[in-house]
Design a protein around this nucleic acid. Structure first.
Length: 207
DNA sequence: CAAACGATCGGCT
DNA sequence: GCCGATCGTTTGC
C-alpha cells in the first residue's frame, strides 16, 4: 500500500522519521523498478534546528520545497557530487524533512549495481556499500537533484513510498545524534537519527 | 562578482 | 583513520 497524505502531513517530523523505518522506497524510471527497505533516517526541522537548511525559516531557491506540503521530495546536491533524498513532512509553510540515509535492496539489484558501478566490467555483488549512506542509495535508485519537488503522492510519480506490513517494534529502533552536523551547536546532539538495530544496511551504529 | 562551504564517498595508509 | 574530489548554493564585498 502506497503511503497516503495523512502519513506525511503529521507535524511531528521526528516521529515520521521513526515511522519511515521499515517502509519501502520505490523508484521506476524508464521501466526500471528499484525498491529498498528504509533502514536509517534523520529528521530535520526548521525553524529551531540549526542543522536544517531552512533554519530560522529562511527561504532560498533551494530550500523552497521544504516549505511545501508534506509528501514532496527534497533532493539536493551535496559536496558537488552526491544527491541526497529527503521526504518533506508537515503542512505547507513548515520546513520539515526526513533524510533517507540507507536502504536494504529488495528489487532491481542489478539496476542498482549498474547505476553505482557503471565503469566496472564486472559489477560487484550486492553488499551494504551499494545502498548504505544517503548519497549511495540515491545513486542506486536513480534519484537526482533535478527531481526535487516531486510529489510522492501523484499517481504517475516515478518515486513513492509503500507500507508492506513489515513490523518495526520499538525494540528494533536505535536512535543517536545525526551525522555530519557537528557545526550545528546544541542541535548536533539531538538524537534525531534512527536506524534498525538488526540491519546490516546501516552506515554506523549497527548492533 | 568572488569565495567559502557542505546532511558524502571511496581509495589509500 | 585521513584526505581529495567536485560544483551548486549562499553570503558577503
Amino acid at each position: 500500500m502506497r503511503l497516503t497524505s495523512d502519513f506525511y502531513l503529521r507535524t511531528d517530523v521526528v516521529q515520521v522519521a521513526r515511522d519511515l523505518l521499515g517502509k519501502v522506497l520505490i523508484t521506476e524510471f524508464d521501466g526500471l523498478r528499484t525498491t529498498g527497505l528504509i533502514t536509517e533516517t534523520e529528521a530535520y526541522r526548521a525553524p529551531d534546528d540549526r542543522a536544517c537548511h531552512a533554519w530560522g525559516n529562511r527561504r532560498t531557491p533551494r530550500t523552497e520545497v521544504m516549505f511545501w506540503e508534506g509528501g514532496h521530495a527534497y533532493i539536493y546536491l551535496c559536496y558537488g557530487m552526491h544527491h541526497l533524498f529527503n521526504v518533506v513532512t508537515g503542512s505547507e509553510g513548515m520546513a520539515h524533512a526526513v533524510l533517507i540515509r540507507a536502504i536494504e535492496p529488495l528489487e532491481g539489484g542489478d539496476t542498482m549495481l549498474a547505476r553505482r558501478y557503471p565503469t566496472l566490467p564486472q559489477p560487484p555483488k550486492i553488499r551494504p556499500a551499494l545502498t548504505t549512506g544517503p548519497g549511495a542509495l540515491a545513486q542506486a535508485l536513480g534519484l537526482h537533484s533535478s527531481q526535487t519537488g516531486q510529489n510522492l503522492l501523484a499517481p504517475d510519480s516515478p518515486v513513492w513510498i509503500e507500507e508492506r506490513g513489515i513490523s518495526v517494534p520499538e525494540t528494533r529502533i536505535a536512535a543517536g545524534p545525526r551525522i555530519g552536523v557537528e557545526s550545528a551547536g546544541e542541535c548536533a546532539l539531538w538524537p534525531w537519527r534512527f536506524w534498525l538495530r538488526d540491519s546490516l544496511f546501516v552506515k554506523r551504529g549497527k548492533s
